[in-house]
């Protein structure tokens, strides 16, 4: 029975993540529009876009190979797998022992890897450019992620998400330690880089020369585009949930009953809305960095993460 429940919870949180991801992105867009004194598209606009893409034809380059066709499925599939691994509303979850934070990071890297290959597949210069930039940023963001993970792992001695969450939940003092704040700041910058937000990448850009993520998917259309965009929205939601839950785990359900789950869902959505607002505000405020200034920002985040780890070692 409990087994059934916990697997049901897994499926439930996967569906919830997939269902809410377009709304979250729509919310950020809507907030940004309001901050630009515009009426803007309603927050549910991304759902309409998804529906439209799924109904449109696909046009595929004659140069492209099966990599181009397989990539949307791989990107989406790996993201879906990650939604099973990250505790969103309850902890611990059934898949906790299946994959830890490193698995989460590398699964997302799997998607990026194939997306970059697909960018090269059509043989156009823009696709190659996007692929090259995306991999560059992914590579130099990697050390920060790993160090933030180690910063989080020191307390609980484990990289498993459930363990980390339980440790923070049982020891609230750890959550307000300096290392926690530093790790949060470091991870926040990396999340902006990984999800292609300002000031690293502009999700609304039309100028190919300034694109990173968009440039790789210029060739995609129809259902392929739907899958890739949906996956990247879900990735955005997952990263925000990681930020929210790893550093402020309160509100998550530790028992699987309906009321606690409902409460936890509400708390989770609340946290997401808060973070989304922060990002919308930030994106209104800052301008995009030149590509070759991005490494500076990322090395700043690396130093923050290093400080987080060493301070937690010193203060232990």
């Amino acid at each position: 029975m409990t087994n059934m429940m916990s697997y049901g919870l897994e499926i439930g949180q996967m569906l919830l993540a997939l269902a809410l991801a377009p709304g979250l992105v729509g919310l950020v867009r809507w907030l940004k529009a309001r901050l630009q004194n515009r009426l803007g598209a309603p927050p549910w606009q991304p759902y309409l876009e998804l529906r439209k893409w799924l109904a449109k034809d696909v046009v595929m380059s004659t140069n492209a190979s099966w990599i181009f066709q397989a990539t949307p499925y791989i990107v989406f599939g790996s993201t879906v797998t990650v939604t099973l691994l990250v505790p969103l509303i309850a902890t611990p979850i059934a898949f906790d022992a299946v994959g830890d934070l490193l698995v989460v990071v590398y699964l997302l890297l799997l998607g990026t890897f194939f997306l970059a290959l697909a960018g090269l597949d059509a043989g156009t210069a823009f696709g190659g450019m996007g692929a090259s930039r995306e991999m560059t940023i992914a590579a130099i963001a990697e050390p920060t992620i790993a160090l933030s993970i180690s910063g989080l792992a020191i307390g609980s001695g484990s990289t498993n998400l459930g363990q980390i969450l339980t440790t923070t939940l049982t020891d609230p003092a750890a959550a307000i330690s300096p290392s926690h704040f530093l790790a949060f700041a470091a991870l926040f910058i990396v999340v902006l880089a990984e999800t292609g937000r300002l000031p690293i990448d502009n999700p609304a850009t039309h100028l190919e020369l300034t694109m990173i993520h968009e440039a790789m998917i210029l060739e995609y259309s129809g259902r392929y585009l739907a899958l890739i965009e949906w996956a990247s929205w879900t990735k955005f939601l997952l990263f925000l949930s990681l930020l929210a839950n790893l550093f402020v785990p309160w509100g998550m359900a530790t028992l699987v009953t309906l009321p606690t789950l409902a409460l936890a869902t509400a708390a989770w959505i609340g946290k997401l809305i808060l973070l989304a607002s922060a990002i919308a505000l930030l994106e209104t405020r800052v301008a995009k960095l030149r590509l070759f200034r991005v490494p500076e920002l990322l090395s700043l985040s690396f130093v923050l993460a290093l400080l987080a780890v060493t301070s937690s070692l010193v203060l232990k």
């Binding site: 529009a33 515009r38 009426l39 803007g40 598209a41 606009q45 309409l48 876009e49 046009v59 850009t205 039309h206 100028l207 190919e208 694109m211 968009e214 210029l218 060739e219 995609y220 259309s221 585009l225």
Partner: peptide
């Protein structure tokens, strides 16, 4: 503000 009608400009004819 064409976006209020869900109308937006894209960078590629594929989209």
């Amino acid at each position: 503000d064409s976006e209020r009608f869900g109308i937006h400009f894209v960078a590629s004819p594929r989209h």
